[in-house]
Design a binder for these strands. Structure first.
Lengths: 125, 125
DNA sequence: CCTTGTGTATTAGCGTAGTAATACACATGT
DNA sequence: ACATGTGTATTACTACGCTAATACACAAGG
């Protein structure tokens, strides 16, 4: 369900947080949907259960998830089934800006970058 | 000369390392060019000099920079004045893949992403 | 010689991320 | 009642990123 890169330098719990936020915003995790259990995710990615738990806790603090003792966490209500396109785009704007800045430092043209994006998209649809 | 984001979660020394690598690959830092001094960069970005020094040391270990005691570090020889386009593109491929993966999780279309990239590029050329 | 400019080594300390092992509270199904 | 499934609290420990203060070695110019 999630894609984790342990050696990327980005903390695992943050990778989980960001991916849940995106999946909820896009409606791929709809209101009321149950999330994978802490132990299941921990086992699948060879990660400590508490690392996942901390990610879930942060999302619950944000109001994005809801907890039910003894049962899996679910997507909280009031999110609307899907965020507006502009709201979704805004979630990856910082990453886009960072990529463009890097491309500029590499003296690449907009066309070079567009081609790279295009190729990356086709890599495993 | 460099753009640092202290609160981004990416270690500062790594931000410096990556940016130097890109500027050298693009030829914007040519062979023999002197780099900003450790203290100068540290002051400019309100960062500890040792943090910058560690970044430079890593780049020297990679053979990208050369040190001359008492004088500024310079770009080492043998880099060629500019790396080939495909080699430069490869430097940001991981970032591109990550951005595309995020866009997919947000259920955005290739056109949405292309528009975002385009807008980001125009933001401050 | 001396001052000012390089980069570096050393030592210490702080905060955060992640691991690890254990125990608890609750819901569900038998 | 009991076993099994949730998420959580607690505590201790390690590793890393960064800061801090100090001192050193060398080059260039006065």
């Amino acid at each position: 369900m999630f894609i984790l890169h342990p050696g990327s330098g980005i903390p695992l719990y943050r990778q989980v947080v960001e991916q849940v936020r995106r999946l909820v915003a896009s409606g791929q995790l709809a209101e009321g949907a149950a999330l994978p259990s802490v132990r299941e995710l921990a086992l699948e990615h060879a990660v400590n259960p508490m690392t996942i738990s901390k990610a879930y806790s942060q999302l619950e603090a944000e109001g994005l998830l809801q907890r039910h003792r003894g049962k899996p966490m679910t997507v909280a209500g009031g999110q609307g089934s899907q965020a507006s396109p502009s709201r979704r785009v805004r979630q990856i704007e910082p990453q886009a800006l960072q990529l463009v800045a890097a491309a500029r430092q590499l003296d690449l043209s907009p066309a070079d970058l567009a081609a790279l994006i295009d190729r990356s998209w086709r890599k495993k649809p």
